[in-house]
């Protein structure tokens, strides 16, 4: 489970998050909505360890991780615009975290193949990421985050900018995938319908501030 207690974040004296608290149970999918500029992305970045918080604490499975560096948190993040590494191909992007953790080549190949199957893109393993379509890139970004087996997966408006049909199909696939793997997920979106279809629980960020 993931818990944030009374988080305070200021950017150069401008308050961004004021006393925000949130709890997500193990294996739960929570959607977080709210207007633009309300601090949803900042919250995800704080949980991932990419922003420094001014006050409050973050707990993962009853262990405080507030000051733990991002690379040791085991929290995955899928960015709004994917951020696939442009100098690596699809398979290399997915294998990135496994190589970092010095997993054997054989196991890397197995896991990459498995996760590519899971997102239905096994045929694109050798493709340059700059040649992927929007939907393909999104699936690869999710696959890259999942293969690292994070304790918590953070999704930052992952379906933004996709056309209606693709959006609906990916939303369904993503929901199935996360439930199948039992991944604890915090899904940020400004789309109420998307939140309702995907999540076990929908929260508005404004209700989390005290």
């Amino acid at each position: 489970m993931l818990e944030c207690r009374n988080l305070v974040v200021n950017y150069e004296s401008t308050p961004v998050l004021q006393n925000l608290s949130i709890y997500i149970g193990s294996g739960e999918i929570v959607a977080l909505t709210g207007p633009s500029g309300s601090g949803k992305t900042t919250l995800l970045r704080c949980i991932a360890g990419l922003e420094i918080i001014n006050a409050g604490s973050i707990w993962l499975n009853a262990e405080e991780i507030t000051t733990r560096p991002a690379h040791l948190r085991r929290i995955g993040l899928v960015f709004q615009d994917n951020q696939l590494f442009p100098h690596l191909n699809v398979a290399e992007n997915i294998a990135y975290s496994l190589k970092i953790h010095r997993v054997s080549k054989k196991l890397i190949d197995e896991k990459v193949a498995e996760v590519l199957d899971l997102v239905d893109l096994a045929h694109l393993a050798d493709r340059e990421v700059v040649r992927l379509s929007g939907g393909e890139a999104k699936r690869i970004a999710v696959a890259r985050a999942l293969v690292a087996q994070p304790e918590v997966l953070l999704l930052d408006e992952p379906l933004n900018g996709l056309d209606k049909e693709l959006h609906a199909r990916l939303l369904e696939d993503l929901g199935k995938l996360l439930r199948l793997r039992g991944t604890t997920t915090l899904h940020v979106t400004h789309d109420q319908d998307e939140a309702a279809k995907m999540a076990d629980r929908v929260l508005d960020i404004r209700q989390l501030l005290s």
């Binding site: 560096p69 690379h71 040791l72 085991r74 995955g76 993040l77 960015f79 590494f85 990135y96 890259r144």
Partner: peptide, 16 residues
């Protein structure tokens, strides 16, 4: 955010 992505995938600052 490419650096951020690498860090959330387990890479230290130097590895990133």
């Amino acid at each position: 955010q490419l650096d951020d992505a690498a860090r959330t995938l387990g890479a230290s600052t130097i590895r990133t």
